[in-house]
């Protein structure tokens, strides 16, 4: 495979891993006001993602950095075209990060209410907006030959874009609820199980609607029809989503969460494979589209970066997996009083 193609799929993989990891943090933040009834519930929920969210967010930084390094023209055009939604996402991520840290600093109900609201908005907004952004990327945007975007925020809020947003939000809600099933106990866990169970059919329906709409709204299926073997990815996504249901019924939450992780990665790859080799498509004129071939860095840069990624990303995965293992145990009430939590 050519370097550009390898980088195209690495680019997709980094975004997929970001959605898989930070996705459950977003999900926990989104259901936080609804199933966190008491202050102890809330502290437990924040502590359930507390040790991990920061490391998870670095997948976003890396995905952004790799876009810059491997496809500078895409980095430049995509982020200036998506100026407003990207800034909204960044501000949301800022207030999410500090709300986690600040909330526990002062024991006052008013103070906590402010940061509770920030935590919710800072989690739900990026979940929704990333979905809207990616659905629009799947669909193509009004980009001219100079990389100038001819549209505004409302251009992005078309039905297919919104469908993508809602799908992401629901995927992450399910994903976050499953993580809470792993890390909590008692009433809170029962509520998390309830959310997981109820969100599942919604996710299933949305996934199917999204796949079918993609047929009409995008060119994603072109690659699939050219290479029918690729349909396995879509089938695998649906099978792993069925797996979520299966393991949830058996109360093996870790497996259910794993199946949900796989669903998110495969759902992202459904789009990434369909896009190939286009990274940022123009719907004004296909010639303006930025592809892995016309927007990549020089072969030397791609090679050096490939070396870096091959050496370091497995290492990152190894120590993050260790961190996940250390912190996949239940958050106990006594932990909340020992400075081991928020």
């Amino acid at each position: 495979m050519e370097l550009q193609a390898i980088w195209f799929f690495l680019w997709g993989l980094l975004w997929a891993v970001f959605f898989m990891t930070d996705g459950f943090d977003f999900g926990v933040g989104t259901i936080y006001p609804f199933i966190g009834k008491t202050d102890t519930d809330k502290k437990t929920m924040i502590s359930a993602i507390g040790p991990l969210w920061d490391g998870n967010e670095v997948w976003l930084i890396t995905a952004g950095g790799v876009t810059f390094a491997a496809f500078p023209a895409v980095y430049a055009t995509m982020f200036s075209a998506l100026y407003t939604p990207l800034m909204l996402i960044l501000f949301a991520l800022i207030i999410r990060g500090v709300s986690i840290e600040f909330r526990s600093q002062i024991e006052s109900p008013g103070w906590k209410k402010i940061w509770d609201a920030c935590f919710f908005i800072g989690s739900a907004a990026p979940a929704l907006l990333f979905g809207v952004a990616f659905a629009n990327i799947f669909q193509g945007l009004p980009i001219d030959g100079d990389g100038i975007f001819h549209g505004n925020l409302l251009t992005l809020l078309n039905p297919y874009g919104l469908l993508g947003g809602v799908l992401f939000l629901c995927l992450f809600i399910q994903h976050g609820a499953l993580w809470l099933c792993i890390r909590t106990e008692g009433d809170l866990q029962a509520r998390a199980i309830n959310v997981s169970g109820k969100s599942w059919p919604v996710v299933l329906v949305l996934t199917l609607v999204f796949v079918v709409s993609s047929y009409f709204a995008t060119d994603l299926f072109k690659n699939y029809f050219a290479q029918p073997l690729l349909f396995i990815v879509i089938i695998a996504a649906v099978v792993s989503l069925l797996g979520v249901r299966f393991y949830l019924k058996k109360q093996s939450f870790f497996m259910a969460w794993g199946a949900s992780s796989l669903t998110i990665v495969l759902a992202t790859f459904f789009g990434v494979i369909g896009l190939f080799p286009t990274l940022f498509g123009s719907n004004m004129n296909p010639e303006y589209s930025l592809t892995a071939y016309n927007s990549s860095s020089s072969p030397l840069t791609l090679k050096i970066m490939l070396g870096v990624v091959i050496c370091f990303i497995p290492l990152v995965i190894a120590y993050q997996a260790w961190a996940y293992k250390v912190f996949s145990v239940k958050v106990k009430e006594e932990d909340l009083h020992h400075g081991e939590s928020y």
Partner: peptide, 30 residues
């Protein structure tokens, strides 16, 4: 970007991952 982008990408994958993952472990790992 061909020159500058790679330095930022390396920063994230080599250093920032390490810092952010282990700060969480430090905070909750007493």
């Amino acid at each position: 970007g061909d020159v500058f982008g790679s330095l930022l990408a390396i920063e994230a994958s080599v250093a920032f991952f390490l810092e952010s993952t282990f700060i969480g472990i430090w905070m909750f790992g007493w």
